[in-house]
């Protein structure tokens, strides 16, 4: 059960702090939980795990592929590994290791890929992941989550530890705006219907859910009835909720910090088409482009991932009705 925060303009803990504190709590309950880091412990705060629980920390050096393989191996003998590196190195750089050593072998690897999409900031195009979800979505049985705020991120980490298999969490390292009240709980594979609407349905995930809610505020003030789903589990996808809600809406848009190819938008579109639903449908995300350097705000603007753009697109679509 989730509850919405009273103030969407406050920021919670940094998301890396959320991840690290959750892992430390898990370690207290289960000594088999281990954290693996590829020389980014200063960036992810995994070095705090090293300090607090050195026995449960493995420094891998700059060896992402080896890290994923070692994580798979240690899970074979009963440990529960959490690995961290930046999102692009946690996915596209190690794809075959995730596939064969991980998913295909039914080994367990929990992955925190940080600073996805525009969160990359001045690390720039080489460190940008607009395709991580697309890559992993094609591999059977992987769970993919996009963390919307610190409460949800903390919950996701705890939940991952209960399940076997490969699980991927993409989330900023820094603090993001609150959406949920502390103590909220969720369900893997179930989207959160935050608001129901009659005209428009926005399906989003990750920290952009906050921007989707901003867009809803603006549109509602102008007379639109707008629903918002936080589809924080992109795989397995909550098809039932999409079918139920999209059937009622005139316009469905997806809104993601990712390429429009292969991510949330594609996944939702597949459900809509295969179920012969007929809303006006548009994927809003990165238009098949590479990343670049700049502040996260600059990049957000550049790639059209703002509430302003969302409002504009929805209004344009509604003109077509």
């Amino acid at each position: 059960m989730f509850e919405l925060t009273e103030n969407r303009n406050t920021k919670g803990r940094e998301l890396r702090t959320s991840v690290v504190e959750s892992i430390l709590e898990l370690i207290k309950e289960n000594d088999k939980v281990v954290a693996l880091e590829a020389d980014l412990g200063g960036a992810s705060y995994f070095n705090k795990i090293n300090k607090a629980a050195p026995h449960n920390f493995i420094q891998m050096g700059i060896q992402e592929a080896n890290m994923v393989g070692v994580a798979a191996g240690i899970s074979i003998v009963g440990y529960v590994p959490f690995v961290h590196t930046f999102a692009p190195f946690a996915t596209r750089r190690v794809l075959d290791q995730i596939f064969m050593s991980g998913s295909y072998s039914k080994n367990t690897i929990n992955i925190y890929g940080s600073d996805p999409g525009y969160c990359v900031g001045t690390n720039g195009g080489t460190h940008t992941s607009f395709e991580d979800v697309a890559l992993l979505r094609a591999i059977p049985e992987i769970v993919i989550c996009d963390g919307a705020d610190d409460t949800q991120v903390a919950w996701i980490v705890k939940e991952f530890a209960k399940m076997e298999g490969v699980h991927y969490l993409r989330a900023n390292r820094k603090a993001v705006r609150d959406i949920y009240k502390a103590g909220s709980s969720f369900q893997i594979g179930k989207g959160n219907l935050i608001f129901e609407g009659k005209d428009v349905l926005i399906i989003s995930a990750g920290e952009l859910v906050s921007d989707a809610l901003d867009a809803r505020d603006i549109l509602e003030a102008q007379g639109y009835s707008v629903g918002v789903i936080d589809m924080f589990t992109i795989k397995p996808l909550d098809e039932k909720l999409i079918i139920e809600q999209a059937a009622k809406a005139k316009i469905v848009v997806t809104f993601e910090n990712h390429s429009v190819i292969g991510g949330l938008g594609s996944a939702v579109g597949e459900v809509i088409v295969e179920n012969r639903l007929n809303p006006i449908f548009k994927r809003i995300g990165v238009e098949d482009k590479f990343g670049q350097v700049g502040s996260p705000d600059f990049l957000k603007e550049k790639y059209g991932l703002t509430s302003k753009r969302l409002v504009k697109e929805i209004k344009t679509l509604s003109g077509k009705m």
Binding site: T122, N123, G125, Q292, V293, G294, F298, K302
Partner: peptide, 9 residues
């Protein structure tokens, strides 16, 4: 800076 020809990498 946004739009630069001199990215970090």
């Amino acid at each position: 800076c946004g739009g630069t020809d001199f990215p970090s990498h």
